[in-house]
C-alpha cells in the first residue's frame, strides 16, 4: 500500500508576519510543518505500523526551503520525501493540487492520501478537495477518527455544534485530518539523524509537465492587521466594575440592550 501525506511548510503560528511590497512578506521567519499535517502524517505512520507493508511518502509543493519540513516528516517516520519546487510563495490551491497529483502520477499511484484540514498560513481549506476531484477519489475532511476495514475506511468527521458524522468511503480516497485524530509523535535525536539519510527528491513543475496557467485565486494585497487597540481598564470592586461594564456595553459599545 502506498500512502501519500501532503505536508506544507508554513511560518510558525507565533511568528510575526511583516508584509512587504504589494503582496509579499518578510519570509525570514521560523517555519514549521503545518500543524494539521502532523496529524495526517501520524495517522499514516500508524497504518504502516498496523499493516506492515505500507510505504509513507511525504509530499510538498513549495520553495527550496520547504525541504526542512520534509526532513521533519522523515524524522517523524516517513519513508521518503518529494518536493515540487516552486519559485513563488503563494501558489493557489488549484495549481498546488495539480502539482500534487502530477507528483503522484510520476511516483506511483496512491492507495490512500492524507492531508491536513487547512494550512495555517493561507487558510485556504480547499486543497484536499481539489486534489480528490483531480484524482477522482472520495474524500472526507475534518476527520477526527479513522479506521481501515478491508477496502473501506470508516471515519468520523467533526460537523456542526460538536456533532460527529460517521462516514464510510471506498478506497482509494483522500482524508483531511483535524485536531483530535491522534497525538503526533515527537522524533528523537536518532530519528533526526536517520532522516538525513532518507531519500528526498526534488522535482519541478516542468518535470511534471504541469503548466502554470493563470491563477484562479490571486493574492493581490497583503496588509498587517494591527493589534486591537487598548481599551478601558477597570480596576475596582467586582460590583463597581460590573456596573461600569454594563453601562459601557449598553451606552458605548451598544452590544447590550
Amino acid at each position: 500500500m502506498r500512502i501519500y501525506v501532503c505536508v506544507k511548510h508554513v511560518p510558525d503560528t507565533a511568528a510575526n508576519i511583516r508584509p512587504e511590497g504589494q503582496a509579499a512578506f518578510d519570509e525570514k521567519v521560523k517555519y514549521i510543518i503545518n500543524p494539521y499535517d502532523e496529524y495526517a502524517l501520524e495517522e499514516a505512520l500508524r497504518i504502516r505500523e498496523q499493516t506492515g507493508d505500507a510505504e509513507v511518502v511525504a509530499l510538498t509543493v513549495g520553495r527550496e526551503t520547504a525541504q526542512a519540513t520534509l526532513r521533519s516528516a522523515l524524522a517523524m517516520g516517513a519513508d521518503r520525501g518529494i518536493l515540487v519546487r516552486t519559485e513563488e510563495y503563494f501558489v493557489d490551491s488549484a495549481l498546488t493540487a495539480r502539482l500534487l497529483k502530477g507528483a503522484m502520477e510520476r511516483e506511483g499511484s496512491p492507495d490512500l492520501v492524507f492531508t491536513g484540514k487547512q494550512s495555517v498560513d493561507t487558510e485556504g481549506m480547499q486543497t484536499p478537495y481539489r486534489l480528490a476531484a483531480l484524482l477522482d477519489m472520495p474524500l472526507v475532511v475534518d476527520v477526527v477518527s479513522f479506521s481501515l476495514d478491508g477496502g473501506k475506511a470508516r471515519v468520523e468527521r467533526e460537523s456542526e455544534a460538536g456533532m460527529r458524522e460517521i462516514l464510510e468511503l471506498t478506497l482509494p480516497g483522500v482524508i483531511g485530518a483535524a485536531k483530535g485524530l491522534n497525538r503526533p509523535r515527537c522524533p528523537t535525536l536518532p530519528d533526526v539523524m536517520k532522516a538525513k539519510k532518507k531519500e528526498l527528491k526534488i522535482l519541478t513543475p516542468a518535470d511534471l509537465m504541469v503548466p502554470a496557467g493563470g491563477p484562479l485565486m490571486d493574492v493581490i494585497a497583503l496588509t498587517a492587521v494591527p493589534d486591537r487597540a487598548r481599551g478601558k481598564v477597570l480596576c475596582d470592586s467586582p460590583e463597581a466594575m460590573v456596573a461600569e461594564l454594563i453601562h459601557l456595553l449598553r451606552e458605548e459599545a451598544k452590544v447590550l440592550t
Binding site: P11, V120, V225
Partner: peptide, 9 residues
C-alpha cells in the same frame, strides 16, 4: 492569512 496577523485581498 497567517492566523489573523495579516489580511489578504
Amino acid at each position: 492569512h497567517f492566523s489573523g496577523r495579516t489580511t489578504a485581498t
